[in-house]
Amino acid sequence: MSSDMKAEEQTVHNPIQIDPETCVKCNLCDWICPGDLIYKKEDNRETLPVIAYPDECWYCGLCQSICPVDAITVIFPDQMINCQTDVKTLLGKVID
């Protein structure tokens, strides 16, 4: 078991940015999210949706596409936009 198995939870990027001024607190983003990430109290027009599990986002954009007032913007993190990974590291290690 590697030692980093318990280390985690650095700052988590929030991909689903909701404009609190524009949001009409309608519940559709919670309803449509395929990953169960967005939690919004039902029948409550006072509370904003909460992005409960931001690091589990697929970046599918369904929440943004269904928002009736365009309050949602999907923002990509730096490791996606400016990805510096050497692709060769994805191609396996060879051991004898």
């Binding site: 990953g35 690091d55 589990e56 993190p77 996606m80 990974t85 994805l90």
Partner: peptide, 10 residues
Amino acid sequence: SLNASGMAFD
């Protein structure tokens, strides 16, 4: 498996 962004759900 891993991918370039290193993000499991990407």
